[in-house]
Amino acid sequence: MLEIRNLQAKAGDREILRGINLTVKPGEVHAIMGPNGSGKSTLAGVLAGRDSYEVTGGSVTFLGHDLLELDPEERAREGVFLAFQYPVEIPGVGNMYFLRAALNAIRKHRGEEELDAVDFLNLARKKMKLLEMDDSLINRSVNEGFSGGEKKRNEIFQMAVLEPKLAILDETDSGLDIDALKIVSQGVNALRDKDRGIILVTHYQRLLNYIVPDFVHVLSGGRIVKSGGKELALELEDKGYAWIDDTVAV
């Protein structure tokens, strides 16, 4: 469903991605690991269409679309979802109002009927259970006053409601204590589906104990320098990222 070919991108004058190649098929879970500054979050941002990055080469095809040609909202409506590393607060905008607007924008794009407030709330309540989220969330503004863990949970809750075709989770595990990590992982696992691709961007192996990936890729210096199965993550944990730099001639 996703074909990344020789993708290059820079932020300002700094080259960050130097030729990424990656194929994600429906149903697969890919973990992208790598040291700080290796380009993990840039890759996530470029796929979602964040305009602080400039794509300088390569191509990304998503379900037959040239993804790089689409605006961020068009990508979202086609089914690309990014769970943010730092979810953004929007004061005064109700969490549910926001999510309904998002869902209806996507449904409208698909030619489906928009959900009214009652139907939406029923759907949302079901998904809230999945993430063990507090009812008070209904009346709060988007991420405003949420703890770090609540924000991350809210991201996965949004993903559960929007049911994307491709989900990119950017450091979803950062800032989570072990209980929250378990809940978030349960939520993600429940969303694993034969039609859905998932890209997990993470620094630590720990998340992968809970969400077991089909493939692990190691990003270093803006390239994928090593790919393997889930055991690669354990090896990394054992030997550290320095091991990669030693084994791969950059």
């Binding site: 269409g49 979202a76 409506r77 979802f81 943010f84 869902l103 924008a105 794009h109 949004q158």
Partner: peptide, 9 residues
């Protein structure tokens, strides 16, 4: 960007 990433124009 957060709004747009969720599909909102």
């Amino acid at each position: 960007f957060y709004c747009r990433q969720r599909g909102i124009s």
